[in-house]
Amino acid sequence: MKASNAQSALVPAGKNALSLGIMGSLGNIEAYISAVNRLPMLTQEEEVSLARRWRNENDLAAAQQLVLSHLRLVVSIARGYLGYGLPHADLIQEGNIGLMKAVKRFDPDQGVRLVSYAMHWIKAEIHEYILKNWRLVKIATTKAQRKLFFNLRSHKEGLDAMSPAQVEDLANSLNVKREEVVEMETRMAGHDIALESQSDDEDDKFAPIAYLSSDANEPTRALEAQQYDRLQSEGLEAALSKLDDRSRRIVEARWLANDDGSGATLHELADEFGVSAERIRQIESAALKKMKGTLAAFA
């Protein structure tokens, strides 16, 4: 199975792959799944240690152990895509590729477990595989559709669409509904579209991948979003609490009064406090500098 080949690339030189308990002649997918589920799981401390060895020392044995301990996750995720009509083994092998990509990019110092990070990469690889095979999977699924698929081309005259009379005749001869004939003809007339552009042409920037892909759920971006939210709430309040009343009033009036950033002017605040606009600018500058130091703890 391709999954086993992919995994074997992480086996260190000189180590017998059969000793891992999942390589070799397993015979069928059930034996593979059974072997995978017997592999020990890692504690968080073990996971962090292995990930640092892989990142800092390029230790293939550590990377291999990270992959093997998460193979059961791939099996579980792949099981959820069995309804697409693709073999479970093929879904698992593609998910294993995603898992290895996740291990390669995993940063143990981000504070997130590998299982959470790897789910994104595993699903992305399986999604890509399903999309590439979507047309082959969906073009003929029922018995009537398979009959139409193999008979429609021989009944068509040229590349033009069938006339209503031709559709009716074919439906009667194959004992199917005319709507099914029309649907199958439409499916067969369609062409596969590359998900990604095959050239650097400016016109190809609108390939499907450009509007189908989304980084919103990518683990690193999710962590960045959480960090930004914390900075906006806890960090900002803590920074403002370090200021005296006048400084806080100036900062809030200048920068936090409106969402569009159109706060009070220096002259407006100068009239409010009975000082010069230059003095307001100095107070504002000192307050922002002080806040920056407080916010550094939340970055």
Rank of each mutant, 00 (worst) to 15 (best):
W54Y: 10
R55A: 13
E57D: 13
E57G: 00
D59L: 00
L60V: 11
L60Y: 06
L60T: 11
A61K: 08
A61V: 02
A62V: 00
A62F: 01
A63N: 09
A63R: 14
Q64M: 14
Q65F: 02
L66W: 08
V67C: 11
H70T: 04
R72I: 02
R72M: 01
R72W: 01
L73K: 12
V74I: 04
V75Q: 08
S76L: 05
I77D: 12
A78P: 01
R79E: 14
R79K: 13
G80P: 00
G80Q: 14
G80C: 09
Y81H: 15
Y81E: 11
G83R: 07
Y84F: 15
G85N: 08
G85F: 05
P87L: 12
P87M: 11
P87Q: 15
H88I: 05
D90N: 10
D90T: 08
L91H: 03
E94T: 01
G95T: 02
I97C: 03
L99W: 07
L99N: 06
M100V: 12
V103R: 06
K104L: 13
R105H: 15
F106A: 09
D109T: 10
V112F: 15
R113E: 11
R113H: 07
R113D: 10
L114S: 02
L114Y: 04
V115I: 07
S116F: 08
S116G: 05
A118S: 15
M119P: 00
H120L: 04
H120C: 05
W121I: 00
W121K: 02
W121R: 07
I122R: 05
K123H: 10
K123W: 01
K123C: 09
A124F: 04
A124I: 00
E125H: 10
I126E: 06
H127R: 14
E128A: 13
E128G: 06
L131C: 02
L131H: 03
L131R: 14
L131N: 05
N133Y: 01
W134E: 12
L136V: 04
L136C: 08
V137P: 00
A140F: 02
T141P: 00
T142A: 05
K143L: 02
A144S: 03
R146S: 05
K147W: 05
K147Q: 10
F149I: 01
F150H: 12
L152R: 11
L152V: 12
R153M: 10
R153G: 01
R153D: 03
K156F: 10
K156R: 15
K156Y: 06
E157Q: 14
G158S: 09
L159T: 10
D160W: 02
D160K: 15
A161F: 06
M162H: 08
S163Q: 10
A165C: 00
Q166I: 01
E168S: 11
E168N: 09
E168P: 01
